[in-house]
């Protein structure tokens, strides 16, 4: 997978902690201090109850493969075929990612397979949270 040309995120004040987290090898989620909702993507208030009392915390990193496609057309920075996946974190939230460290085939990508993060440094500012099979 050629990584150089993929479109990279541009953090905002509300998401900065997430991208600092991936640089530190952590997936940082947020939890509401009032209703206990854990949520993603980042924002400085709870999407469950609109409380501003929220705490950033480090997720365990444990995840399961929720759904995916294997894209067969070229996209900037990617060599097809490659899987575009959504994983469900142990804490509940889901995020889009790529699965690395295994063949990009249906056989190698059973739903609900256990995954762990693989932090891929793209440049000095951005490290992407990719995932790989837990035993891989």
């Amino acid at each position: 997978m050629s990584e150089s040309k993929r479109p990279l995120p541009q953090p905002t004040p509300e998401t900065k902690h997430f991208w600092e987290g991936t640089q530190a090898g952590e997936i940082r989620l947020q939890k509401c201090d009032d209703c206990a909702k854990v949520y993603f993507p980042p924002r400085p208030f709870c999407p469950g109850c609109a409380s501003r009392n929220v705490t950033i915390f480090k997720a365990s990193g444990k995840a399961k493969l929720h759904s995916y496609v294997i894209h067969h057309r070229p996209a900037p920075g990617f060599t097809p075929p490659y899987a575009i996946a959504v994983v469900e974190l142990e804490e509940g939230p889901r995020l889009m990612t790529n699965i690395v460290g295994c063949p990009q085939t249906p056989e190698a990508l059973p739903l609900d397979m256990e995954l762990v993060p693989h932090f891929e440094k793209m440049n000095d500012e951005i490290t992407l949270p990719l995932f790989q099979p837990a035993k891989g």
Binding site: P9, P41, I84, M96, N98, L128
Partner: peptide, 9 residues
């Protein structure tokens, strides 16, 4: 930030 980096096209 959270979808386009993963090859969605």
């Amino acid at each position: 930030q959270f979808e386009m980096p993963y090859g969605v096209y």
